[in-house]
Design a protein around this nucleic acid. Sequence first.
DNA 1: TATTGTTATACTCTATAACTATA
DNA 2: TATAGTTATAGAGTATAACAATA
Lengths: 142, 142
Amino acid sequence: MRAMSADHQTACRAWELLTRLLLERRVQLPALAAEFDLSPVQCHVLHLLEPGQLVPMGRLAETLACDASNVTGLVDRLETRGLIARQPAPGDRRVKVLVLTPAGARVRTQLQRRLAAPTDPFRRLPISDQRALVRILERLLE
Amino acid sequence: MRAMSADHQTACRAWELLTRLLLERRVQLPALAAEFDLSPVQCHVLHLLEPGQLVPMGRLAETLACDASNVTGLVDRLETRGLIARQPAPGDRRVKVLVLTPAGARVRTQLQRRLAAPTDPFRRLPISDQRALVRILERLLE
DNA sequence: TATTGTTATACTCTATAACTATA
DNA sequence: TATAGTTATAGAGTATAACAATA
């Protein structure tokens, strides 16, 4: 057993707790997605596509850390649903860029609101703790 | 637009930031799982099965919020790998309980350590923030 | 030659419905 | 009759390899 600093143990304990929270939310995501007739990964794509943004398919594959061939089917299904559209990229005819349709933007707005709706246990946290979380997470994600 | 209290907005902002963090980790999970030649959901099953615990298959389905038929294949693959085993449940011959094998317990130990290994950006947070996170998340998850 | 996106293929994850064994 | 788990089936998510169009 290697000696570990108290600071390292604190960091691991914090990350372990975040992991438990992650796995819990991971389990809840399919039901949340189903409220919009979406899959978890489709939710993620809509979350990533900001209105007015032009996102090359290859960049989406990078962000999702998945193979480009996977994005083809993913985009097919969202395009069939009328939520996103492929467009030719100006300047490089190999590239296709993705844009939210107006319908997609509307679904995304509702989805974002739903994703940001805190659970009951979270809402019961003291407001000072919630403020502390905002400050810490903003620093972490900046 | 409905009026929302400042407290409600703080809670939503905090939950939104947690959502972003969790979607990022969701993307990283397949690669982490692949370090152990596992899928994300297989990681989750090992995470849930504490050594020595007897978990009925139906309870696993509940915890994973998925259909029981799904658990059959999931358990098949982990059992083929020699990481878990089905056992008859004492008292009700319809039920099968799951247990970690010794090999499964070893993999779980390494997996838990890996899941708790904080990312570089997280380790760069002030130790006071990390301690605050531990305190807040323990309260949230209790 | 290298890169972007697609297709073909295979495996895992997931749900629904029908089934078996047991309660 | 009801419940626990399995099987059959189907669709979605994922990767690898081969391919077409373009750079």
